[in-house]
Design a protein around this nucleic acid. Structure first.
Lengths: 107, 107
DNA sequence: CAGTTATATAACAAATAGATTATATAATTG
DNA sequence: CAATTATATAATCTATTTGTTATATAACTG
């Protein structure tokens, strides 16, 4: 899963997470995304490129504007991988519960 | 949530994800984690440091060894943030479903 | 068509990441 | 206690990331 590299490193930047949070409220153009940040337009355009490459954001063309929105597939992919960790942690807890349960009688 | 930076960038590296996958199978010492990789021990120690700082891995001291295991809290924290995206995507889909439903009669 | 608006790209500087080798530290073992 | 084992840290190199300014492109507007 080479794409997890791109996805997780896209999520590692706070500006990009803020962009995603903004897009969670609904579609926005590049300039609308620039506005709330203390950062230049090229910087935001580069962040968007990272998010698009990671499959987290999709852009459509509307005249000279590029309205952006959240992509549907990415979160599922992340979840799939995290599921592995989740299951492992649950199993460890189960084991720990077992250990604790086994210890109780001795007390 | 400043810690999400550390968490997501820890997950962005394939070696570190492989380490987590290994730890999902159970506890391992540093040298046991080094073994399957074509990489030096200091490199793995550094990766582990990143994972520990991100709260994804915990180490205990056992003589000269440092057995590592998955930390329980981290995944929940990631899930919490992803939940925001999940909800947003569901909402978008609901909206899209609504739009499609509204369009159908016109066809 | 000239000017403006929306966005992308190039060139560059500073900071960070990831690996290596060499070395330090601390516990174990003979 | 000397040698070994397990791990960490420092110095160093290279590549990547993130921001900037300057500029290009392409569509709208009067």
């Amino acid at each position: 899963m080479a794409n997890l590299d791109a996805t997780f490193s896209a999520l590692a930047d706070p500006t990009r997470r803020a962009i995603l949070a903004r897009l969670a409220l609904g579609e926005a153009t590049v300039m609308e995304l620039v506005e709330p940040f203390d950062m230049t337009q090229p910087a935001i355009s580069r962040h968007l490129k990272v998010l698009v490459n990671a499959g987290l954001v999709v852009q459509r063309v509307e005249g000279t504007k590029r309205p952006c929105r959240l992509a549907p597939t990415a979160v599922a992919e992340i979840d799939q991988w995290l599921g592995m960790l989740r299951r492992a942690l649950e199993t460890n807890y189960d084991r720990l519960d077992g250990v604790l349960a086994a210890m109780k009688p001795e007390k």
